[in-house]
Design a protein around this nucleic acid. Sequence first.
RNA 1: GCGAUCGUAGUUCAACUGGUUAGAGCACCGGUUUGUGGUACCGGAAGUUGCGGGUUCAAGUCCCGUCGAUCGCCCCA
Length: 416
Amino acid sequence: MSKIETPRPIRGTQDMHGEQAERFHHVVHTFDRVRRLYGFGRIEVPVFEPTAVFSRSLGETTDVVSKEMYSFEDRGGESLTLRPEFTAGIARAYLTEGWQQFAPMKVATHGPLFRYERPQKGRFRQFHQLDAEVIGAPEPAADIELLCFADQLLHELGVADGVTLQLNTLGDTETRDAWRTALVAHFTRHEGDLSAESRDRLAKNPLRILDSKEAQDRPIADSAPDIDAFMSADAGKFFETVTKGLDAAGVKWTRMARLVRGLDYYRHTAFEFVTERLGSQGTVLGGGRYDGLIEALGGSHTPAVGWAAGIERLAMLIDAPAIEPLDVAIIPMGEAAERAAYGLLANLRRAGLKSEMGWRGNMKKRMQRAAAAGARFAVILGDEELAQGVAMVKDMTTGEQHPVAMDVLVDAVSPR
RNA sequence: GCGAUCGUAGUUCAACUGGUUAGAGCACCGGUUUGUGGUACCGGAAGUUGCGGGUUCAAGUCCCGUCGAUCGCCCCA
């Protein structure tokens, strides 16, 4: 008989168990709690969409559309894509579900995303993000609220210490276009000294030269003009309102004039919460204002702002969540005792006590497992106890034990 | 897509410049204790050294390929 070969997991996917899974869910749970404090309603959107949802919204940036999306044809020949981000799908839902009636709409969601990328630290092909958006709000108040939300989330997760909020503005359309023109002129003047990658970027995505990692690009990028010189009065006012709001709310930030976005629809606020602790994949939460996106999907002009945060990256940064100790471990000896134990177990759990029963092994083994699970009490049940209508309750911290009548067991092991 | 490093029991790691039967800790199972844990001791099970090919008297070790992991580049919605 030839051995069956077990199929391998798909590259860049992960199976989580134990501490890793607990970390993951602690992040999600904290997000869900904080999001309510800010009045962000939970939404659910599909994991896959017509490819056009993403190709239209992502626009001209060819790499992400052609190389990095999981696209395939369904049986009807329609091109579908596993969502590589939340924003485009949410924007689509906003238009097709008539959610305009709820504007300004504050929404939150989380779940898996898919990008065909080379896996590395904190970067997977199926990964997971938290997401928060405010759609239909031109007011800088929306930006401020989202940033406060993000900041509080990171604080409540206990990761804020090593993380800094880098903030920039990309201005309004007028400002951005003027700045971009000046940047192209500047980089063209120094084209000969740029790295090969950056010469490429000059044609495709000149703003990206600003945050190039190539040492030879740094002097040229650093001497490039800041957006401030081109800022329109409106755009300047907008940014000032955001920064003053953050100061008033006690959210620490640093201006990062080199922080840009790869896509054209971004306007005004752009931000990233960055840590040094994760190597080159150090952005833990990032976002910005995308006033042009919804128009690209065929909607009317709809200003919006949002952010997303990598759950895996946050999960790596937080302290290990404390494991909840077991309240009670029931240790039955014999069939009759086991049958009785089901009743006790049900009562304990219905009373909200975390309880488990040992299924196998001799008493020593079961005691060991009870201890390993951090049980506060072990409840030993054998023929002698059954005959007397009691259970032997052992306090695992003191080691003392005494018989307790079965009908008052829940009381006896409940925390005072 | 590109570059570098790495792949040995469930897991973390050993095995000198190629040389007998690939070892250990933890975890697991059993025992010392026919109903009492967090210690100690004894024993057991567990590996086609990722996979495929090559060189050699001999390969975990060297070479090629492949798959995967890690770190970086590209990209980062």
